[in-house]
């Protein structure tokens, strides 16, 4: 029924990716000095610049390079790292996987804790429970992630509460508990802010839903308050939360840099920081493209979930 709408959204997602890759390409072009000079920094000589230009194919005509870059974006061919000579995609893939583990775990925390708290606050609106939950979330919004990260490190990784490792990453294959122990602190500090947003969005849209006419209908059917919530209110009340989650996912991909740095977590963030300090242009480009793509596809996913939850969405009909 909504295939048309979804098809349109997929087309838009790929179109956005195309535009972003064009922008990244354009930005590289607009850098003062040539890319080769930037890469070489202060150590440039006439020949070394020529050599790098050769290596990077910078001598080819502009449109060829543009086409090459855009096609590369979609075929995951981002060239070679200038520092390690590995294909960029090989550098990115394992780190992206780790960052995604971190981000998704942080999302999961939000979903299983923030949403239920938001629902409870809405259902018990204006009671002490609501006030408590809401004020905690206010505090949450005002703590930047580097602060929460530092505090967590300070209190939970040193005696007497030496509960977690100070940083690093252990793959899942080496055991669930070590994996989890390394993930929790960065995830929690990533989470503090989006947690508050998700909670507040959930609370306010649930309150609006609970005041709607169809909830009155449901209550006047004689349903218990629990069924009213579960069957009638959640599905409609959580719709705006889906969007907030998607937006925050993109936001998280951005702030992951800081958190990864603090917890020495070997993910995308650290890769980008390292690439910048080493002037590894292809890696930097991919480092911009990949999180943006993640953001675009998170939104696409949100739209798909949204369509599933809300049968009213249809293209071209009000």
């Amino acid at each position: 029924m909504n295939t048309l709408y979804l098809a349109k959204r997929v087309v838009i997602a790929f179109l956005s990716l195309f535009i972003v890759s064009s922008l990244v390409f354009g930005m590289t072009m607009a850098l003062p000095g040539s890319a080769a000079e930037i890469i070489l920094g202060t150590q440039q000589t006439e020949e070394s610049v020529q050599q790098v230009r050769e290596e990077m194919g910078l001598n080819r005509p502009l449109h060829v390079r543009y086409l090459d870059f855009v096609v590369g974006t979609f075929t995951l061919d981002w060239g070679q790292s200038l520092v390690s000579d590995q294909p960029v995609v090989d550098l990115i893939a394992p780190r992206l996987a780790r960052t995604l583990q971190l981000a998704l775990f942080a999302m999961l925390l939000s979903i299983v804790i923030a949403i239920p708290l938001g629902v409870i606050a809405a259902a018990d609106r204006d009671t002490i429970v609501d006030t408590l939950i809401t004020s905690v979330s206010y505090v949450g919004v005002s703590i930047p992630s580097f602060v929460s990260a530092s505090l967590l490190l300070l209190f939970l990784t040193t005696p007497p509460l030496d509960l977690f490792p100070t940083g690093g990453f252990v793959p899942f294959s080496e055991g669930f508990v070590p994996w989890l122990r390394h993930l929790i602190l960065p995830a929690v500090s990533l989470n503090v802010i989006i947690f508050a947003y998700v909670l507040r969005q959930t609370r306010s849209s649930m309150i609006e839903t609970l005041e709607s006419d169809y909830i009155r209908t449901a209550r006047l059917k004689g349903l218990t308050e629990r069924s009213v919530l579960a069957k009638h209110a959640l599905r409609n009340g959580l719709l705006p939360t889906v969007t907030v989650l998607a937006i925050n996912f993109g936001w998280m991909m951005g702030s992951v840099v800081i958190v990864e740095e603090i917890f020495s977590y070997p993910g995308m963030g650290r890769l980008i920081v390292q690439a910048i300090s080493e002037r590894d242009l292809p890696v930097i480009q991919a480092g911009i493209l990949v999180p943006t793509a993640a953001f675009i596809f998170a939104n696409l996913l949100a739209d798909i979930v949204y369509t599933y939850l809300d049968p009213r969405i249809q293209l071209g009909e009000q």
Binding site: Y214, T217, N236, D310, R312
Partner: peptide, 8 residues
């Protein structure tokens, strides 16, 4: 139109 639940 408002008294029926739009998603059921």
């Amino acid at each position: 139109s408002r008294a029926l639940n739009p998603s059921l």
